[in-house]
Design a protein around this nucleic acid. Structure first.
Length: 572
DNA sequence: GCCGTTTTCGGCCCGACTGTTTTCAGTCG
């Protein structure tokens, strides 16, 4: 699968390069569309190529399929290498600065002979850019700010940055009597694992007052734009937030537009067009006479387009449009359906709270059961438990269970999968536990084949119920380890081992693509918080959204089972 | 570069805001 992502990245790079050549915009889009198809492909592109079905993929025609084949055999794409030689890196660097697109990048490079971002910053500070047509003081200022922003962040943030900011803005604006309706939109509403801004939509009688409040919020460090209907701010930590004020009558159309994704919008506008309508953020209109057909709610717009209302988490043009047209969308799993948690730590290993505190918090969070999975002995940095300590823990849990009301604790462990695939506890120990999570915490750099075999071997152990954070990624910090996820998923099915959807917002592991692939393969998934403190049960919401983004229904998720059903299912 | 019960050629989603102009290009989402 990594091949899919590698080629997708190359196609995206080609699109960037073509923009700097001022190529036909539709050709550029064709490369981006092709990249998106590969990013979301739930099958290894090798397989598709082997069946000679590349051109059956949406957005992949003769040319792109040839380039894919070239990469599969030669591990490079000549056209890409040529473009890279032809186009200076500094153009690409400049284009990544907010406010600089292909046109300005080219202008700066051509007229000022700028060779790197350092030079750009220098010439900007010396006001040399103002010698160019169309650039005056303000543009220079914005470029300097853009450079500063680039230095501070990589430009993308984790969902856990966006959700609290959205909540804060909504809380503040709701207090205004002018504000009637308010909702988060954009990638935060779609619950994407990484976001680059926070979008908020309101209906209000007096937009000036709302805008004034928005740009004056305490978190604001910069006002990027302030208009009658749209304003943008940057927060102190660099995250951008956009606010859009709309007429109440257009709320649905605008929410739809503003939620995106862009790719989803393009698809449904296309459907609208084919049906003789025009869809924009103000509503669905008749193409003939511009008469308004619908605008008040998302539901009515989808309905008129002949579609089911698509849940925001699915709006990525990953096939949901076709399925919605057939009225066959999945009934996505909801937070309410989650009855238990399989992955939690106490202060016996590296958690912050006691067993009793964790149990109490789980009960308060509405859980019916909680598996306590402290680390195993090899993970000394996390104060992993020796067999003796583990057995004492099992006793303590059984004892506490007799006192608990409304929650049952299950005994368990997050047992390390050692470098050779052997587990950190023997079967004699594991068989004493109700539920076993097996995870990798060391040897991340192992080669693909070894890493894959290591995980498959762990699954072969009949006491292992669940593989924890199966790819090991840490969003924005560490890439996944090199594992053949296809094989892992097939083996999970064969051995009846569940795969974790780790709900920690820095992990969200499996990611949405692999979740969907698992669903398609009939593998059972488990949403687990990996809580190391009482407040981390809150993260369940992130795990559920990730599951929803992977098209999970309740039947795909192990912890939608009642305790009785679960016990039956996991009996050895 | 892709795509097709209108089409194998001629389309390809659509609009807001900024900064610079003086009617608009560039950028962004």
């Amino acid at each position: 699968m990594t091949t899919n992502l590698t080629i997708a990245q190359i196609f995206n790079d080609i699109a960037e390069l073509l923009e700097l050549k001022e190529e036909n915009p539709f050709k550029i889009r064709a490369y981006r569309n092709g990249a998106q198809t590969l990013e979301n492909l739930t099958e290894d592109v090798h397989e598709v190529a082997r069946r000679e079905e590349l051109t059956k993929l949406p957005g992949i025609g003769k040319d792109l399929s040839e380039k894919i084949k070239e990469f599969l055999t030669a591990h490079k794409i000549k056209y890409y290498d040529q473009l890279k030689k032809e186009i200076p890196q500094v153009l690409i660097d400049m284009k990544s600065i907010p406010g600089i697109g292909p046109k300005k990048a080219l202008l700066l490079h051509k007229k000022l002979k700028i060779k790197n971002l350092g030079e750009l910053e220098k010439k900007c500070s010396e006001h040399k850019l103002q010698t160019l047509p169309g650039i005056r003081a303000k543009t220079e200022e914005n470029i300097l700010k853009g450079l500063e922003f680039l230095k501070k962040s990589e430009g993308r943030f984790s969902l856990e940055n966006g959700v609290p900011l959205a909540d804060e803005i909504i809380r503040a604006l709701k207090k205004l009597k002018e504000v009637k309706r308010i909702s988060v939109a954009g990638s935060v509403r779609r619950r994407k694992d990484t976001i680059h801004d926070v979008d908020i939509l309101v209906t209000a009688q007096n937009s000036a007052k709302v805008m004034e409040t928005f740009v004056g919020l305490p978190v604001v460090s910069d006002v990027i734009a302030e208009g009658d209907t749209k304003s943008s701010i940057r927060t102190i930590n660099g995250l951008q937030a956009d606010l859009r004020v709309v007429d109440p009558a257009a709320y649905g159309a605008c929410l739809l537009y503003f939620t995106g994704s862009k790719a989803h919008n393009i698809r449904i506008r296309d459907i609208a067009k084919k049906k003789g309508y025009k869809l924009n953020e103000y509503g669905l209109f008749s193409e003939k006479n511009d008469k308004l057909i619908a605008s008040k709610s998302e539901e009515e717009i989808y309905k008129i387009l002949g579609m089911e209302c698509v849940p925001p988490e699915l709006r990525e043009d990953h096939g949901e449009v076709e399925v919605a047209l057939k009225h066959a969308l999945p009934h996505l799993v909801t937070e309410k359906q989650i009855r238990g948690d399989f992955h939690s730590h106490t202060n016996e290993s590296d958690g912050e709270n006691t067993l009793e505190e964790m149990a109490e918090s789980a009960r308060k969070h509405g859980l019916e059961y909680l598996v306590v999975t402290d680390h195993s002995k090899s993970l000394t940095v996390a104060n992993g438990l020796t067999e003796k300590r583990l057995m004492a823990r099992v006793e303590a849990i059984r004892k506490l269970n007799k006192k608990l009301k409304g929650l049952t604790l299950l005994t368990g462990s997050e047992v390390d999968i050692l470098a050779d695939g052997v587990l950190d506890y023997s079967d004699d120990v594991l068989k004493e536990l109700d539920f076993v999570v097996a995870s990798i915490h060391s040897g991340f750099k192992q080669p693909r084949e070894k890493m894959t075999q290591r995980i498959l071997k762990a699954m072969d152990n009949k006491y292992v119920n669940l593989i924890g954070h199966p790819t090991g990624r840490l969003i924005g910090i560490r890439d996944a380890y090199d594992v053949d996820v296809d094989k892992m998923i097939r083996h999970a099915k064969a051995t009846n081992t569940a795969l974790e959807i780790n709900a920690h917002p820095k992990r969200l592991d499996l990611n949405e693509v692999y979740i969907r692939q698992s669903v398609d393969a009939g593998v059972t998934l488990a949403i687990a918080t990996d809580s190391h403190a009482v407040n981390q049960f809150d993260n369940l919401t992130y795990g559920v959204s990730e599951a929803r983004r992977g098209w999970c229904e309740s039947k795909n998720i192990l912890n939608t089972l009642t305790l009785a059903e679960l016990r039956k299912k996991i009996r050895k």
